[in-house]
Design a protein around this nucleic acid. Structure first.
Lengths: 141, 141
DNA sequence: AAACAAATTTGTAATTATTACAATTTTATA
DNA sequence: TATAAAATTGTAATAATTACAAATTTGTTT
């Protein structure tokens, strides 16, 4: 199945009714590759949709993540992050500045090639931690 | 380097002074493979150490995780989990009952074999979600 | 051992993310 | 238009985590 890049089509593709608020959230995630928090999304959208409630953003993100329309990322202990790119890739977070980066995965096979046994596995996440280029350079060592 | 199984030795091995509280936390994690939350650890230890403060448990776990003595697991959005087993392995969480399981990784190589580029990677986590044996059987489908 | 400093622990208060929930609004349907 | 269902909103509650200052413990120097 070909994943849609248009917000309305993406929602429809996953059987979700495209309301104004849902389209706005979906659109944000398709345009911004910044792995935003709920607050980041809310604050940005609130500027153009003054009636928007933060609860709606929470509800929408939870719904979309449950349906597999978006990815929920728990690499950061503080906040859940979201990603509109649901193609298989890993994430990196800098332990110093906190920035989150996408990391392509060469060998996708190994992600599902495991000792799952009787478990039914539906999704996988690969997280890396360390130091980004800038922070690496500033390390005292 | 051979990772110590004894709580005091493990702490010492990583350059951490083995106080009563730290030993207790470390000992709990070396004896229990339940990927506990802070509350689970605190409640158990509080029974035998009535002066124990939850802040101390938070501080200790943060310290140990930072020093690499234990693993911090963020597979669950609600609570951070901890693991005294720092050997390379993946984690699974059931989306229905919430149970967390260890999953051995056959091909450890692929975990660090990625497109890191200029990033300095110090740790990796592989998380799986899905349904455990019991919950899988009860799925309506 | 006494005095002092450093490290650790404790307890409380504050902060922050998230959820619960009832009321309201919007959308779909008869 | 009337009614039902779905979605949104706003506020209050919950729960995890952190900040921080006081108290305690430990280590060191005299």
């Amino acid at each position: 199945m070909n994943i849609q890049k248009n917000p309305i089509e993406r929602l429809t593709q996953f059987g979700i009714k495209p309301s104004l608020q849902r389209i706005a959230v979906m659109n944000y995630l398709l345009k911004n590759y910044n792995h935003p928090t709920v607050d980041m999304i809310f604050n940005k959208l609130y500027a153009s949709i003054p009636t928007l409630s933060k609860t709606t953003v929470y509800n929408t993100l939870k719904l979309l993540a449950q349906q597999g329309v978006i990815m929920e990322i728990t690499i950061d202990e503080k906040n859940v992050r979201y990603d509109g790119d649901i193609s298989q890739h890993a994430h990196f977070q800098c332990k110093n500045c906190g920035c989150i980066r996408d990391i392509p995965i060469k060998n996708i096979k190994t992600i599902s090639d495991n000792e799952a046994g009787e478990l039914l596995i539906t999704e996988s996440r690969l997280y890396y931690k360390g130091y980004c280029e800038k922070c690496k350079a500033n390390l005292v060592k």
